[in-house]
Computed example of a mutant assay.
Amino acid sequence: MSESKFNPRTIILLLIIIFVSIIRVAAPFSGDFKVIANFSAVGAIALFGGAYFNNNIKAFAFPLLILLLSDLFIAKTSGFGFFYGGWYWTYIAFILMVFVSKVMMNKVTVLSFITTSVAAVLVHWIISDISAMYIPGLYAPTLAGYWTCLVAAIPFELKFLYGTFAYGAIMFGAFEMLKAKYPNLSLTHSRVA
């Protein structure tokens, strides 16, 4: 009977996610919160979870849990409400972003990271902006209203893309450097992550 060795892969992945999440949670304390609100780490967290967690429960649950906890904290500390009309469309968008990452990032490279980031942010843009249709008086609940919403959201989605690139570079870069130094963190050595 072979002896099972402890593999810290899941713990390292979670520590990287938690570290980046702290930055997101600290954002409302910035004097320029509205300016930096969409320069967020949550897109990178969704991609990171999809790329590195082999277990689907962990891949989807950890990024969604971080999104939920940070949304609740931000709502509590900033005065912005959490349960706004159509809020669940944002969560559906993040589920799809994790899925996009699982499908597109079979091997983590700079090119796969960039293309997956762009694809995931496009999914976020198209799906999460449906929620604006549920806020009375914001946009007409028509196809033309949805199109107007999508166009108005472009500056916010660009900030979201830049945040996904920046935080993703930190997260993916840190884990890839750790994998290079400690090969037992790779999936070939671990079936538990």
Score class of each variant (00 low, 15 high):
F83H: 04
N7Q: 09
L158S: 08
L72N: 01
G163A: 10
F82V: 02
N56L: 08
R191E: 15
S128N: 03
M133V: 09
F6C: 12
G86Y: 12
V25Y: 04
F165S: 11
N7T: 13
P136Q: 06
S2C: 04
V100T: 15
E176C: 01
L14A: 03
F60K: 11
V151P: 05
I154T: 10
M105K: 08
G173V: 10
Y139G: 02
K34V: 09
F94E: 02
F62G: 01
P136T: 10
P8Q: 10
A140H: 05
L138M: 14
T188M: 13
S78V: 07
I135A: 04
L122D: 02
G173H: 11
T109V: 06
P63Y: 10
T164Y: 09
F94P: 02
L65Q: 00
Y88M: 15
I74A: 05
T142R: 11
C149Q: 15
T77N: 01
L68Y: 02
I135M: 10
A180Q: 11
I126T: 04
A120M: 11
M171F: 02
A153G: 13
V110Y: 09
G43F: 04
A26C: 12
F80S: 03
A166Y: 11
I66K: 01
T116D: 07
P63Q: 06
A59G: 12
Y88T: 10
F19G: 12
F94C: 05
S190P: 02
S128K: 00
K181M: 11
F33C: 00
S78R: 13
A37L: 10
A93Y: 14
A180L: 14
M104W: 04
M177H: 06
F160A: 13
C149E: 08
K179Y: 11
